[in-house]
Write a protein that binds this DNA or RNA. Structure first.
Lengths: 178, 178
DNA sequence: GTCTATAATCAGATAGAC
DNA sequence: GTCTATCTGATTATAGAC
């Protein structure tokens, strides 16, 4: 049944994401994922041809949404740093759990070749925020602002969301200004 | 020979640290470490009773230096945020590679029970920086400032170190102020 | 202190029945 | 679409010789 396949795939993704975020990609075995779903390892292999493919699938939404946000900002010629920072905060916050899973096993990402993409985001954000001819000091400021904002987005959960978002974006904005 | 033992232990630590930082704790096998040193797996077990013990040993310097820095700041009643931020930047920068190894396998750290300690640092830093009765917005500002500063310390390498340090500390300081 | 040899376990992956 | 059964290879760890 086609319905069932969609559900099972989605369930696998959800369970895998949760386990990856909790204990990292390498440490999470297919047996563990299968057991939690009440299916067998072999059934997993029907839906995903390899463990790497499962990770790719889990991480995909983040990997398309961040560039999409950057595309939009670049196309609009967005020059208000506050708007850019808000946009970035929102993408990361929306994919918090995936982002945590990525953080908790950077080694696995390196093997998947997504690290170059992530560094590419940084470059594009830097250009948007302080222009193409950034000094080492400019770059340091961007690192503090963007890195800090990322942390705040990932850790979100306690406290009124809107207030936290405003305070974090504001702080990152001030970090940027000389 | 006692001399030899010390050297071998130190060499094991160094190679393990490098591999952990490159590819994470789980992905790095004892075979790999032993091969790179030209010794056998069994020899590793002579020096470290388990893989976890090796990780603990590698991470230990960071785990003692950060609390030491916080102790000093608390004992001195340090109230200048800039000084505290400088101190934190310096500890992290000094242990950059260990810190990267920790970041690249957060799952392993969770199993070692060091995560509570790390969150403890955050709390102490927060109290030092914005006092004991922080609002959600205050906490968000601290997250941006400290998280961003951490990133800058870890990524240090390109550019004149003193200039980067000053710019990063300055940015974190501004992120903190309302 | 370092070795050889091996135990015990678990990993990811595949073949083929139902 | 899920199963049973199995393969292959790697892993951590141990025992005991030198």
């Amino acid at each position: 049944m086609a319905r069932r396949q969609i559900d099972t795939r989605a369930e696998i993704r959800a369970v895998a994401l949760q386990l990856f975020a909790e204990q990292g990609f390498e440490k999470t075995s297919l047996r563990e994922i299968a057991e939690r779903l009440g299916i067998t390892k072999a059934a997993l292999y029907y839906h995903f041809p390899s463990k790497s493919d499962l990770l790719s699938d889990v991480v995909a939404p983040l990997l398309t949404d961040v560039p999409a946000m950057l595309d939009a900002a670049e196309r609009a010629g967005e020059s208000d740093p506050r708007r850019i920072l808000e946009g970035y905060f929102d993408v990361i916050a929306r994919h918090r759990v995936v982002f945590m899973a990525m953080l908790s096993d950077i080694g696995a990402l390196a093997r998947l070749d997504v690290l170059p993409a992530v560094f590419g985001w940084r470059d594009r954000l830097q250009t948007l925020l302080v222009g193409p001819d950034a000094s080492a000091a400019d770059a340091a400021r961007v690192t503090v602002a963007v890195g800090g904002l990322q942390d705040a987005a990932v850790m979100m959960g306690g406290g009124p969301a809107a207030e936290v978002r405003a305070a974090a974006v504001d702080a990152a904005y001030r970090a940027l200004r000389t």
